[in-house]
Design a binder for these strands. Structure first.
Lengths: 154, 154
DNA sequence: ACTTTTTACTTGCGTATTGCAAGTTATATT
DNA sequence: AATATAACTTGCAATACGCAAGTAAAAAGT
C-alpha cells in the first residue's frame, strides 16, 4: 500500500493519496468530533470496519497525516492525533461540506444543517480557522486533561 | 451504482459521491485541460481505462455534474460539459492542488510548479475565479467554435 | 490473586470496484 | 466502397472493501 502516483499533476496527486472513502472521513472525525482512539472510530456513525480502520490508520501515519502516541499513564489505549500535514486538510474538508450543503440536497435531503453548517455558510474562512484553533487547543491539553471534546454537532 | 449514503454528515456525504480516484480527475481535465470528448479523456496523462471512463461519465451525468451533448453538425462525437453543480467543485480541486503543493513534495518531489500553480499560490480566490470564468467563456463559444482551449499547463 | 472487561488489533472469506486487453457498432473521411 | 475514428461493451484478473469471528495485552472489578 505505498501509494503510487499516476503522474505529476498536483490535483491528481492529491487524489492518489486522498481519493478513497475513508481517509478524509477519519480526519473529519478527529477534527470535528474529537475522536482519537481506535475505539472512538469504531463507534462512529459511519461504522468503519476494524480491519479497514487499522489499515488506514497505519497508512495515514506513514504519510505523516497523524501521529500515534499514548498517554503516559496508560499502556493500552493508543492516541491518534493529527499532525500539521493532517490539519492542512481542513480547507478541503470545509469545501467538501460546503459543496454537499449546496449541491447534494436534491439526491440526499437529510443532510444535516446544524449549528456548525450555519456557521460555515456565514463565514467559511472563520469556520476553518475555528476548527484548527479548537484542535490545537485540544493538543495542548493532551497528556494533562483526559479529553478536550471538540464536538460541534455539524 | 446509485450512490448510497453512509449517514447524514455533509462531509461524509460529499465523499460518498466524490471519494474515488476518478471523478474529480475528470472534472479537473475538463476545467483545466479543455477536455470534452471521450477520446480526449482516454488520451490524458492519467490514462483512464475506457470501461471506467464510460461508467464514471454515466454516473456523473446522472448526478448532474455534467451534461452529454453533441455539436449540431456531428452525430458521432459526444461532448461532455460541466454543469453548474460540476463547476461548483472548483474550490475543492483548488484546495486539493494547494495541499499537494504544500504537503506532498517530500514523498513525490516531481509535482509540477508551472505557471498555474504559481498563480494559485499567489491568490487562491483569483485562481478559482479564473478557472470558472475561462470555462464559462468556453461554454458560450461551444457550438460555434470547435474548441476553446483552457489549457494552463498547471 | 484471579477473573472479567476493554482496547487494539488480525485473519479468513465473500463482494465490489478497478484495471487491462480485445472486440463491437455507428459515424465520418478518403 | 474501403478505411479510419469515436464511443463504447465484454470478459477476466487484480486490488480494495466489508463482515464476522478470533486473539493478545492491558486494565478494572471482586
Amino acid at each position: 500500500m505505498p501509494v503510487d502516483f499516476r503522474c505529476d499533476c498536483p490535483f491528481t496527486s492529491a487524489l492518489d493519496v486522498l481519493g478513497d472513502k475513508w481517509i478524509l472521513v477519519i480526519v473529519k472525525q478527529m477534527l470535528t468530533e474529537g475522536k482519537e482512539t481506535f475505539k472512538d472510530f469504531t463507534e462512529s456513525d459511519e461504522a468503519i470496519a476494524t480491519n479497514i480502520l487499522s489499515a488506514k490508520l497505519k497508512l495515514m501515519e506513514k504519510l505523516g497525516l497523524l501521529q500515534k502516541t499514548k498517554r503516559p499513564d496508560n499502556k493500552k489505549v493508543n492516541l491518534y492525533l493529527l499532525t500539521e500535514k493532517g490539519l492542512a486538510l481542513t480547507p478541503i474538508l470545509v469545501e467538501l461540506a460546503n459543496w454537499s450543503d449546496n449541491n447534494l440536497r436534491d439526491i440526499h435531503p437529510d443532510i444535516l444543517s446544524g449549528e456548525g453548517m450555519q456557521f460555515l455558510r456565514q463565514d467559511k474562512t472563520a469556520f476553518t480557522a475555528m476548527l484548527l484553533s479548537n484542535y490545537r487547543k485540544k493538543l495542548e491539553k493532551e497528556g494533562l486533561k483526559a479529553r478536550a471534546i471538540v464536538n460541534l454537532d455539524i
